[in-house]
Structures are given as C-alpha cells and as structure tokens.
C-alpha cells in the first residue's frame, strides 16, 4: 500500500522542478522515500530528485513500487489548495487519491511501460563552485537576449558566464570572495543551452545555494535542495549536456 501526507510547498517544488524537463514522470516509491529521474525528449537535460521520508508527516509504504503520473494533473490539484496546506495521497488500484481538506480528487496512473526510465549517466568532476542561486540567475538573465547558449568558465580566481552573438555580448564574473566555495585544479570552460539552464534555476527558491561542477565539453552538474524541512531536505540534481563550440 501507499499512503503519505506531504506539504503543498514540497509537492509544488517537486512538480515544478520536474516540469522543467518533462510532462509525465515515473516515481519510485521506496521504503525510505521517493526518487525520480526525468529526462527531456532530446536527452539534453535531466532532473533527479530524492525525497526522504522524514520530510513527510505521514509515510506508509510496505514495498517498493513505481507509479507514473501526468504532472499537469497534479498541478491542477495543487492549484486547488493554498501554500500552507498539506494533502494526503493514497494509491487505490490504478488511481492516486488526493485529499485536501474537503476535496477528494483521484487521478489515473499512467502505464509505467510508456514512461522511459532514463539511464543516469556517470558524471563526475573534481572542480566546482558553490554560489547563491540568485547570483547565478542574474548572469543567465543578462545573457537571455544575447544568445541561446552560455559559456561557463571556472578558474582558481573566479566563476564566469558569458554569451556572445554577432552583435551583443553579456558577461557575469563572480570573484572568489562572492563564492561560498571554489575548487579548481586548472581552468575549465564549457558551453550549455541557456533555455534549459534558466528554466531550472528559476525553479529553485531564491535564497538557496547551488553547487555547480563541470569539465570542458562535459555535462554540467548542479546540486541543490528543494522544499521545506530543517534537518533533511529534498535533494536535487540537474544534468545538462554540453554544446560544442563551432
């Protein structure tokens, strides 16, 4: 059986984050929590989330199970509630039942076989920077009307994000003292599609820090936290494939 109680804030953060890459997702409901991997149709961007059971006020799962959902339907349920609410979710055969106050809504589960289980690529880099997400977002927004790609550079002294087109140019430089952490064993640079990156960063709360790691012409890995919670949080990871420079 599956029965849980989740705050609207946490559910909304999960759904919005997944919504940056997919409209349908397959969740693994485990004994100790929920995990989900979603990749966009072109296999360029991937979101992975780990939801520990400790952030759920009720969590009753006797064996691991996969369920697939249409995220748009979950969004419409979230719209019915206010941000301080929490809701109870119960699985009933091939439906998922949501109870929020006086309202009970059931949505049908999707066929698990129809939703691809993405292969999570092994990505690892020793070089990284930790920064406030709001600073990073500023640099992305500045580049938005310049190009559809952004080049990230990491040196021992700073982290920068630069976009150029035939006509315009935009660059953000975050020196070491504005970064929470910086580890760099040699300068690296790589370009990424801006649209995905901006969509993702916008979905992270403005007071969060993010950890960005990459290598030259190598997938970008961003780690972040989501939702409310004091001791444990929802752990998120975003992977973005590089764009080769011509």
């Amino acid at each position: 059986m599956i029965r849980m109680n989740i705050s609207i804030k946490n559910l909304k953060d999960i759904v919005d984050m997944l919504g940056t890459v997919v409209t349908e997702a397959k969740f693994k409901i485990g004994i100790n929590g929920i995990s989900v991997n979603a990749v966009d149709p072109a296999h360029v961007a991937m979101v992975s989330l780990e939801v520990p059971k400790s952030i759920l006020s009720e969590y009753d799962v006797d064996s691991e199970e996969e369920i697939s959902l249409d995220l748009e339907k979950v969004k419409s349920i979230i719209k019915l509630s206010s941000s301080n609410d929490s809701l109870t979710i119960t699985k009933d055969k091939d439906k998922l039942k949501f109870e929020i106050g006086t309202i009970i809504k059931s949505i049908s589960l999707l066929d698990n076989d129809q939703i691809t289980t993405p292969r999570v690529p092994q990505v690892a880099s020793d070089d990284y920077a930790v920064m406030p997400k709001s600073e990073f977002e500023k640099g992305l927004r500045a580049a938005e009307d310049v190009s559809d790609a952004i080049r990230l550079t990491l040196t021992a002294d700073n982290f920068s994000a630069k976009s150029t087109s035939d006509a315009d140019e935009s660059e953000m430089i975050l020196p070491k003292d504005l970064l929470k952490e910086l580890v760099c064993n040699g300068a690296i640079k790589s370009s990424y599609p801006l649209e995905y990156l901006l969509k993702l960063v916008k979905s992270i709360s403005s007071n969060e820090d993010i950890k960005i790691s990459f290598k030259s012409d190598y997938p970008l890995n961003i780690e972040f936290s989501l939702g409310s919670g004091t001791s444990e949080r929802i752990k998120g990871r975003f992977l973005l494939a590089p764009r080769m420079e011509s």
Binding site: V39, A42, H43, V44, P193, D217, R243, M244, S246
Partner: peptide
C-alpha cells in the same frame, strides 16, 4: 547540431 545529448 552542436548540442550533445547526455546519453545516446
């Protein structure tokens, strides 16, 4: 296309 996928 210069965009690489995460996996093929």
């Amino acid at each position: 296309i210069r965009q690489r996928p995460l996996f093929k």
